[in-house]
Design a protein around this nucleic acid. Structure first.
Length: 1004
RNA sequence: GGGCUUGUAGCUCAGUUGGUUAGAGCGCCUCAUUGACGUUGAGGAGGCCAGAGGUUCGAAUCCUCUCAAGCCCACCA
């Protein structure tokens, strides 16, 4: 670490020395970026604990990339935006924490390792669970550094000392704790239900992990007892247990409730005819066959009518033993075979080819999903919870967004979010893969063998969870707030007599009785009632009057209250039979279950860690809109439930990165993919960041292509050269503490503009308008500062302080956008890091005169340049010009040298009143008349035409205004200011047209 | 089927709560250039703001409809 710093100082030093002689003409990002990053990292300033004087915290949880992944442009966007925000907040005096990490990405990683094994001719089952997991861990460990270093490449100023991994110990504890709390609250349950099953991944999938693909399928019309009905999946006929019709359909009323024998390929079977509104009378024949085990709608129908289910497809996607001769066939094969057999029996009436159908496929591997019944763990999204005052997790998640605790940017995604939440079904959280967080539940072997299923929908095994043991931590009074969980301790015996939830500190404390595993909580509205309940519950415990006083005393007089956390241990024996033959549930949890805890599990939850208090809730969640549901919604569910806090205050959703023609970049089309690392190598990280930040707005896709990146590379180089010029021109490169004094019109103007731009940029960054901030800054840097002020500084000279002041301000303002080049220039001004400099709070004065004055000079110069260009006068030729300046004589005189130089004049004659030189090209600007006497040189005809054209335009303009001003409605209704300005403009325009007319006359 | 977004210069996009003659960058054209920068400078051309209707004194901006491009959700056998 030290060595790096020394190396860095050396480079800095050499840069400093160079600045006195020569700074390279071109900025070479490749040469400096890694060194600068190492210096930042070893400075310790990525860690907010080292930011002295910082007060409020500002936290961003980095969405964890897959531990085995590679950096792609999607990451590049997220890292650029987040780094921009965190750097701005750090400079703005916040205790800025950007917490990095990686995700174990259960299915994706396991699949990757299985592919490797396949090359060796093995499956995971050959290795066994333990060995396989070891193999996966090795694989992860080997590739995790790749993504870590790639994150660094882009300049991410995240706190690596706090880096987390979803499978590390603390996070696993958090997952277990979350599971147990949810189970105890009745929020997590186990059920034998129909789920989305991927036969290739050999696992369940959540509803939103299923994708739909349009496909042309065959639709079979089959004879079904007295009915004819259509199906796309005739093989499921083997699992039919009912037939459903619409309750009001007169055609089938007589069958409702009857049991009917249906002829089939394996002989007759019995179905019940039920009436259900889910049936569409208009579609097909208005009759559907019901296969509860292999179709979601059918499952619901069966449940409503208490119909049993018959599973015929197994977890390999093959027909089961109960399918007779079809046993062992894949569903597709079976479909063909069964159709043939049915045709032979005359059961097929007709077949529609090209039936438009949506195939449900696995979002990971693309395999067709088989819905099938399975014993799985679910989160009950409709369970009313005491914690939420009777609301469900769904309702609570909607509430925190509705009431503004969480703000989604852009706002339109609220609608999508609400819609998704409102329609959320129970979330299946168990996965049949090995890699991931194993479900913290044990079953007793003995009890399991005696398990009994009721109706196929319930089961009655009692799972053994991690059992709880309460330990306590001391709390400081300021840490105590409403909704905290607290333990009540007898002040004399020091014994914990219970814990509860504080609802309102000041007056009434509502507590919830606890408890131990068995007792269920109740809610009390007064502290006295709570104490009484304690007394009742703990028969043997003497609750002294002290205890009561103690709690109340705490609120006002700093008593001693403690807050419990529960450490979980594996259960030792079965709670039913006391035997010790326990085995853990073989399944693992959905990746999104642990990701849902990310904002707080990474900060130490479930312990009452200091970081959790300091940095949670986080301020910003920045991620792509494509994972609003997968992830963002789940974090909101988990955090509101487990921590009773929103996980973040704002959600900024960025768009997808597309190619220039708007195509999605996809691995399957390598030519569309831009590799951020290649870009960094060729153009530098700063250029990449700018191309992703400027021109992209929240929720909208951003197009990335070489020309764009090259454009920003040019800009980075421009800034480098601006700095190079300033550093080489000034007597001594140094930081300027105080706002320098402005002498000339241009000085006043540039400082005024700088202040305006600073304000605008701060405003934009605060309100997440990053693109606009960048654009405003670029315009100022390139146009105002480089093209005007620097050029003027060559004429007016001795502007060291202002040049340096502007430069240092620019570097600060640009730093969050392009940290590398700004930091490397900064080294010429100071030994401190730019990264931790204080953000500029320059305020602009509302002084219109400053702007107007300089505007006149600017316009005069531009007008002279135009005259030259229009008459094809070569730029090298120095000209004499006459300016009739009226009231602005003094101003023009003061800036005479500037005008001479920038307009390439040999002489400028400044007159107060009209005394037009003959044979001149002329123009008007800002109340100043400009003449370029060019006897014999200018083309009279051309000049005449030009003036006529100008006149025409002006006439049109005046006409428009006159119309407007003669309109009664406008004069009466428009704001006075608008009317007043309009009148003034009309007047000047009229004056100008008179002058034009005169000029046209004169020129003849 | 439901919902959302987008449509402004050849291309990529700005355009705040409606208010002068609609802006920028790139590209194009003309010219310049050894003194910070050719990864540059000066100037120019180029737009019925997708279309139609409406509200208004006034619409790129608000409302309705139409057309086009795209996205998300749901899903019926």
């Amino acid at each position: 670490m030290r060595a790096i710093e020394i190396l860095y100082r050396l480079i800095t030093l050499s840069l400093n020395i160079m600045s006195e002689k020569e700074i390279p003409k071109t900025y070479d990002a490749f040469k400096v970026e890694d060194t600068i990053y190492k210096a930042w990292e070893s400075s310790g300033y990525f860690n907010p604990d080292n930011l002295k004087g910082a007060k409020d915290s500002f936290t961003i949880s980095m969405p964890p990339p897959n531990a085995t992944g590679f950096l792609h442009v999607g990451h590049a966007v997220m890292l650029s935006v987040q780094d921009l925000v965190i750097r701005y907040q750090r400079m703005n005096g916040k205790k800025a924490l950007w917490l990095p990490g990686t995700d174990h990405a259960a299915i994706a990683t396991q699949t990757a390792v299985e592919k490797l094994l396949k090359k060796e001719g093995k499956t995971r089952h050959d290795l066994g669970r333990e060995k396989f997991l070891k193999r996966v861990e090795e694989y992860v460990e080997n590739s995790r550094d790749t993504i870590r270093n790639q994150i660094r490449k882009i300049g991410s100023s995240c706190d690596w000392s706090r880096e987390r991994y979803t499978l590390d110990k603390g996070l696993t504890t958090a997952v277990n704790e979350a599971f147990v709390q949810m189970y105890e609250d009745g929020l997590i349950y186990r059920g034998h239900r129909i789920v989305n099953w991927c036969p290739r991944c050999h696992s369940t999938l959540a509803d939103d992990e299923v994708e739909y693909k349009p496909a042309k399928e065959k639709l079979y019309w089959i004879k079904y007892g007295p009915f004819t009905l259509a199906t796309a999946r005739p093989e499921t006929k083997l699992g039919d247990t009912a037939v459903a019709v619409h309750p009001d359909d007169p055609r089938y009323k007589k069958y409702i409730g009857k049991k009917i024998m249906i002829p089939g390929v394996l002989g007759e079977f019995e179905v019940t005819v039920v009436a259900d509104k889910a049936v569409d009378r208009e579609f097909g024949s208005g009759v559907i066959k019901v296969t509860p085990a292999h179709d979601f709608t059918d499952y619901e129908i069966a449940r409503r009518h208490n119909i049993s289910m018959k599973q015929v497809i197994n977890e390999d996607g093959k027909m089961m033993e109960n399918c007779g001769k079809y046993h062992g066939m894949k569903t597709r094969e079976c479909r063909e075979a069964i159709v043939k057999d049915m045709q032979k029996m005359g059961l097929i009436k007709k077949i529609d080819e090209d039936y438009d159908h949506n195939l449900s496929v696995c979002y990971r591997c693309g395999e067709v999903i088989e819905p099938l019944p399975s014993e799985q763990w679910f989160i009950d999204v409709n369970k009313k919870l005491d914690r939420f005052g009777g609301r469900t997790i769904k309702e609570e998640s909607i509430r925190v967004v509705k009431n503004g605790d969480i703000k989604i940017i852009p706002e339109r995604f609220n609608k999508t979010y609400f819609h998704w939440m409102e329609n959320l079904r129970d979330w299946c959280i168990s996965r049949q893969i090995w890699f991931g967080h194993r479900i913290p539940v044990w079953y007793c072997k003995d009890c399991k063998e005696n398990k009994k299923y009721k109706m196929g929908f319930h089961q009655d095994i009692v799972p053994q969870l991690y059992s709880g043991k309460t330990i306590t931590y001391r709390l400081k009074p300021k840490d105590f707030k409403a909704d905290d969980q607290v333990a009540f301790e007898n002040s004399q015996t020091k014994e914990i007599i219970g814990y509860g939830i504080i609802r309102n500190i000041k007056e009434t404390t509502v507590g919830k009785l606890p408890l131990d595993n068995k007792a269920h909580g109740a809610t009390y509205n007064k502290i006295e009632e709570l104490i009484d309940a304690f007394k009742k519950h703990y028969h043997n415990l003497k609750v002294s009057e002290n205890t009561k006083a103690y709690v109340i005393e705490y609120e006002f007089k700093q008593g001693k209250l403690t807050k419990p956390i529960v450490l979980r241990d594996k259960p030792v024996c079965c709670s039913q039979c006391n035997c010790k033959t326990l085995e853990q549930d073989p399944d693992t949890l959905d990746t999104w279950f642990s990701s849902g805890l990310w904002t707080f599990s990474t900060l130490g939850w479930p312990e009452q860690a200091k970081d959790l208090k300091t940095f949670h809730p986080t301020q910003l969640m920045e991620t792509g809109y494509d994972i609003l549901f997968f992830w963002v919604a789940r974090m909101i569910i988990m955090s509101t439930y487990l921590v009773r806090e929103v996980p973040f205050e704002k959600v900024y959703l960025h768009g997808l990165v597309r190619t220039k023609s708007g195509e999605k970049m996809s691995k399957s089309k390598p030519e569309t993919v831009i590799d951020p690392l290649d870009v960094i190598k060729e153009y530098g990280a700063d250029s990449l960041r700018l191309s992703l930040l400027i021109g992209s707005t929240a929720g909208n896709d951003v197009k990335l292509y070489k020309e764009k990146i090259a454009g920003y590379r040019n800009f980075v180089n421009k800034l480098w050269n601006i700095s190079r010029y300033v550093l080489m021109t000034v007597k001594k490169p140094e930081l300027i503490e105080k706002l320098p004094k402005a002498e000339t019109s241009s000085d006043k103007w540039i400082l005024q503009r700088l202040a305006q731009v600073t304000e605008q940029v701060s405003r934009d960054l605060e309100s997440y308008n990053f693109s606009n901030a960048g654009e405003v800054l670029r315009d100022f840097t390139w146009n105002d500062f480089a093209d005007w002020y620097l050029e003027i500084s060559k004429v007016e000279k001795s502007k060291d302080d202002i040049l340096l002041y502007c430069l240092q301000s620019l570097l600060k303002l640009w730093h969050p956008f392009m940290p590398f080049v700004t930091e490397s220039i900064w080294k010429n001004l100071s030994d401190d890091f730019l990264m931790i400099q204080k953000w500029s709070e320059l305020k602009s004065k509302s002084d219109i005169k400053i702007e107007n004055d300089f505007e006149i000079i600017k316009q005069t110069i531009i007008a002279l340049r135009n005259l030259r260009a229009e008459h094809n006068i070569e730029p090298a030729k120095k000209l004499k010009a006459v300016v009739i300046a009226k009231s602005k004589v003094k101003l023009i005189e003061e800036n005479k040298d500037v005008v001479l130089k920038l307009a390439r004049l040999s002489d400028l004659q400044i007159e107060k009143t009209s005394k037009k030189p003959a044979h001149s090209a002329s123009t008007l600007t800002s109340g100043v008349e400009i003449y370029l006497p060019l006897e014999g040189v200018i083309d009279i005809k051309k000049e005449q035409n030009r003036l006529e054209k100008e006149k025409e335009q002006l006439e049109k303009y005046i006409k428009g205004f006159e119309q407007k001003l003669s309109n009664k409605g406008f004069v009466e209704n428009a704001p006075k200011e608008i009317v007043k300005v309009g009148k003034e403009k009309l007047l000047t325009a009229k004056e100008n047209i008179k002058k034009l007319e005169q000029q046209i006359k004169d020129i003849k």
